[in-house]
Computed example of a mutant assay.
Amino acid sequence: MRPLHLDGSPAALDALKGALADALGGGPAVLPFTDPALRDAMTPGDPAEPDTAVVIATSGSTGAPKGVLLSARALTASAEATHRRLGGPGHWLLATPAHYIGGLQVLIRSLLAGTEPVYLTGDGFRPDAFAAAAAALKGGPRYTALVPTQLVRLLEDGGAGLAAAMTFDGIVLGAAATSAALRERAAEAGVAIVPAYGMSETASGCVYDGFPLDGVRVDVAGDRIRIAGDVLAHGYRSRPDLTAESFDGGWFTTSDRGVRHADGRIEVLGRADDMINTGGVKVSANAIERCLTAQPGVRDACVVGLPDPEWGEAVVALVVPAGEPRAAAELRAAVRAELGAASTPKRLEYAAELPLRGPGKIDRAAVRVRLLAGFGG
């Protein structure tokens, strides 16, 4: 296995692109990383499992390190299905970290399209830097992949970054849920987004705007989303036990709840572990978050359950306002009207930003620690 340290430089990304080309052709498996601890957890000195082209090292939602094993077939199937859905092979701007599957797939898609990607490098995400990178992207169609937080910054900037976003034929939006309010803002601004659902185990997004990509099958067993198709990983690095739990008979069982509508559209309802048992009633943190972010004056929200002697768990929300914060009482009343008393946050606090982990995912553990610090005081 070939570990590659990504230090944020164009040279490191070029090296990764070359290593990926070799791996797709049957060369050594690639382990891209930024965190040496995650690299070491993947025992890079040991041979990679058979048929492995890439190992995506991730801490996962629980913080337990695991390595997702992806074959050349899975990576290629995902990239080709993405191009078919978007309108054909094109020119890609890499704007997310390449050690995560969303960024790595930008390089895979560029390799298969025979085009040179443009890299957005540097600390943090700045609309002006995005605009400069987009200007360097020659030819079309023009594509990029972003996380919702990045799109929000472009929309709020309203300057060169937003103007650059409007030039893309498709912006794949993944890693976190795209709220209805964000969809509306993007449409009003003339930004062509394609909300995607997927994960490392599906070689990146495999459901675009609610509908599975070609060759992908999605089933909802009970309320749990299951996925099958050539895009699937074939297990976890050195974890046959974990592989057996999640992969069975060609299907991968996710940790997400969902529903399949009559027209075939898949709606993701949130993680199976986002349910809060408050006063004996189970409520969905995801549903409360969607209600809050649909309110005027709310940019983002995270809802968690905190220990409470009376309710067992109390529903508590951390809200990022858009402009002047709305009164907490108004937001709580909006949740009560839509979802009922049990879902209404017992407490609501404000923050300038939500803590994030990975490629734009909310760090719920950090939110919980922050809210616990002031809970019951």
Rank of each mutant, 00 (worst) to 15 (best):
L6G: 08
D7F: 10
S9C: 07
A12F: 01
A15Y: 03
L20F: 01
G25W: 02
G26T: 05
G27S: 00
L31H: 14
T34N: 07
D35K: 13
A37W: 13
R39G: 11
T43L: 13
P44I: 02
G45I: 00
G45K: 03
D46Y: 10
S59A: 12
S59L: 07
S61Y: 04
S61E: 04
A64I: 12
P65V: 12
L69K: 03
A74P: 09
A74D: 08
A77L: 06
S78L: 11
A79C: 04
E80S: 10
E80L: 12
T82A: 09
H83Q: 15
G87K: 14
H91R: 14
H91Y: 09
L93M: 06
P97Y: 00
A98L: 02
H99T: 15
Y100F: 13
I101P: 02
G102R: 05
S110T: 12
L112M: 04
L112H: 00
L112A: 04
D128Q: 12
D128P: 07
F130I: 08
A132H: 02
A133Y: 05
A134L: 10
G140Q: 06
L146C: 05
Q150A: 08
D157M: 00
G158Y: 01
G158R: 00
G159A: 02
G159C: 00
L162W: 02
A165T: 05
G170K: 09
V172G: 08
L173C: 06
G174N: 02
A175Q: 00
T178R: 04
A181N: 02
G190T: 15
A192C: 15
S200N: 13
S204C: 10
C206R: 03
D209S: 09
L213T: 01
A221K: 14
D223R: 15
R224W: 07
D230K: 06
D230M: 03
L232T: 06
L232K: 08
A233S: 14
G235I: 01
R239A: 12
T243V: 05
A244F: 00
A244Q: 06
E245N: 08
G249V: 09
R257M: 12
R260C: 13
D263P: 11
D263W: 14
G264F: 09
I266C: 06
I266D: 01
V268P: 02
D273L: 00
N277S: 09
G279D: 02
V283W: 02
S284G: 06
A287Q: 03
E289M: 04
T293V: 13
P296L: 00
V298Y: 04
D300E: 12
V304K: 08
G305I: 04
P307V: 14
P307M: 15
P309V: 10
P309Q: 09
E310H: 14
E313Y: 03
A314E: 13
V320G: 03
P321V: 04
E324Q: 10
A329F: 09
E330M: 15
R332H: 10
R336G: 02
R336H: 15
E338M: 07
L339C: 06
G340Y: 12
K346G: 15
A351T: 09
P355L: 11
R357H: 14
G360W: 00
G360P: 01
G360F: 01
R364V: 07
V367F: 01
R370C: 11
A373V: 08
F375G: 06
G376C: 07
G377F: 15
